[in-house]
Design a protein around this nucleic acid. Structure first.
Lengths: 195, 195
DNA sequence: GTCTATACGCTGATAGAC
DNA sequence: GTCTATCAGCGTATAGAC
């Protein structure tokens, strides 16, 4: 177990990341984090001022990981539609949902500007990056140029996030896959040759 | 205040609906529900066996309300794309999010089949209804017939749910509006005349 | 740095009076 | 039906020893 080799501070952050993903902010207690990390009260309150402080460190780390994963696909080979397809169809545990997206439902996260900032930045970055890829596809004649790249980027990211929501409600990945397939089908239809 | 005229049972359900929307299941305590409803412990435990039982009643009621609202737009006048547009652009308090969608992030809801069932049924119904409207649009030559209606329905519903997620992260409705606009632009592009 | 002790309010419920 | 106890356990710390 890798986690056992880390120092207490990192173990606490990683445990907080896991629990925030599984149970959200409201559903995650300092005690539960400590137990998972194998650390005591004193250790946690030595490294962090409290639950919000530890959560902030955890959220920031998760946000970075998420952006890195996205970039791996979006900077890959192929045309715009192909890279977006690779991003959307990347292998995932759909029913776990998005570790950042799920936090938008946490009232205590959204209410705290410091805690919400990483969420905003993450989705802003992803939208901008997707818009870049789309604009590239438009410049190369892959996608109709009269469609607003920023809008399409938002639609694609929203379809992804909403796909998780539908999948968790259904208890299966099926709606997620449909949502992704539908989005890609529409995107392919938006080729200039089709107009 | 209408709520003061209702009996305790209905006040409890309505208060639970509000709190579940605002704070989710994990973030909502029986005590908070009682306070908002102006009812005591005894009253709540007389009408409901406990928190899950009351939550179930509240979720069912919210689910019905949601489906009714959707149906009002989807059964309205105009063509398929126009009705879907009316549905997506219906006036909403975007930052509040979806009262059903937000519950998919609640571990205790998803883990309990009885509590999850209304979520599954709601989104299944909405997807089927949207697919019907789309199929109608395809039969009338409004939308290309070679696109899978079930996939497009999932995409549209996911864009809606994901739009809420992005908006809550951003702290403004802007990403929601973009996601909706992008989805509608793509849908209009998918007309047979464009292929 | 990490541990144990201590604290106080809240959670989710039960029991019994009225 | 509704109210008021009462309860064991958890949530979120603080204090101080080591």
């Amino acid at each position: 177990m890798y986690i056992l080799l880390m120092n207490a501070r990192d173990r606490l952050i990683e445990s907080a990341q896991e629990l925030l993903w599984e149970r959200g902010y409201v559903g995650t207690s300092p005690r539960a984090i400590q137990e998972r990390a194998g650390a005591g009260q004193g250790s946690m309150y030595h490294h962090f001022s409290g639950k919000p402080d530890l959560a902030l460190a955890a959220v920031r780390r998760s946000a970075e990981a998420l952006c890195a994963l996205a970039e791996a696909e979006l900077a890959g080979p192929g045309g715009a539609v192909q890279r977006i397809s690779a991003y959307l169809r990347r292998e995932r545990d759909v029913l776990r949902g998005c570790r950042i997206g799920r936090l938008t439902q946490d009232p205590d996260i959204v209410a705290d500007p410091a805690l919400r900032q990483p969420l905003r930045e993450t989705f802003d970055r992803l939208r901008r990056r997707l818009a870049e890829v789309i604009a590239e596809g438009q410049a190369r004649g892959e996608i109709a140029a009269d469609l607003a790249a920023a809008d399409l980027a938002a639609t694609i990211l929203a379809a992804l996030q909403g796909g998780y929501v539908l999948a968790r409600a259904a208890g299966t990945a099926e709606p997620f896959d449909r949502a992704v397939d539908g989005a890609l089908a529409l995107l392919r239809r938006a080729a200039p040759s089709s107009s």
